[in-house]
Amino acid sequence: MIRARRRLSPAAVRGGIVTFLLMLLTAMELYPIFSIVSNSFKRLPDFFRSPIELPRRLYFGNYIVAFDKLHYFRSLLNTSIILVFSMLVLIVAGSMAAFIIARRPGKWSHLVYLFFVFGIVLPTFTMLVPQIKLIGDLGLKNNYISLILLYGAMGMPMSLFLYTGFFGSIPRELEEAAKMDGSGLFQTYFRIFMPLAAATTTTLVMLQSIGIWNDFVLPDLIMTQPEYKTLMPALNGFYGRMLGQGTRWDYIYAAIVLCILPMIFIFFFGQQISNTRRSRRSD
């Protein structure tokens, strides 16, 4: 016993303490997420008795109600349509602009670059009122195009920033070699630069899709008709209806799980793709 204690060096003790604290913090970090899932399977009286107890039996009734009241498929479809098309705008327009900015440097392209990157600093709420007014004047309320255009424009600074940084790092010889082989500007962009930028594209998609999926204020103000509601405003409306005497936390937690799940899928799928690509490259 004494010998064992003597062998513990201060570094080992410190390592043990740090590991223990880290595990505690990790538990605190994960607990709310675990609690969402665990509480979504409880019946309401069980939840009220103790929100921290594990569910005795998995009860799926909450999900049926949440599924129905959220109009889950419709909201999910709306969010997905907006997400996919705004990502397309961001990838295509952003990378094309960045291609020219990075490969044809000059005073003008630098100015355009600065103008766009300035948008990273601009707070969302400064633009909010003019954006809503503009969308209203264009008659685009309750139209997918409105949000696709807005997200495309608001994500453009980040898209340009990432693509310009990457394209700027590609050696000039590559572009010249393509030119020697008779490749035009568009072909060089499509066949050489875009495939090389796959990692940048993945980063962009993962960064921006979190923001678009989780955005609440803009879709809530623009998509006012029920059949165009996206997930977050639908969830907010659902929460509002469930408040009151004896809030139906069981239904709310089930609805929250339904809203988080697709995002987690997208994220781990994206990570999987980038991992396999990385391992393939290193082979």
Binding site: P32, I33, N214, L235, I252, I256, C259, I260
Partner: peptide
């Protein structure tokens, strides 16, 4: 596990 909560929307964090 420290990255996971970032996927959760602000309004959901609020509700929970």
């Amino acid at each position: 596990s420290f990255f996971l909560p970032m996927l959760i929307a602000g309004i959901i964090v609020g509700f929970v």
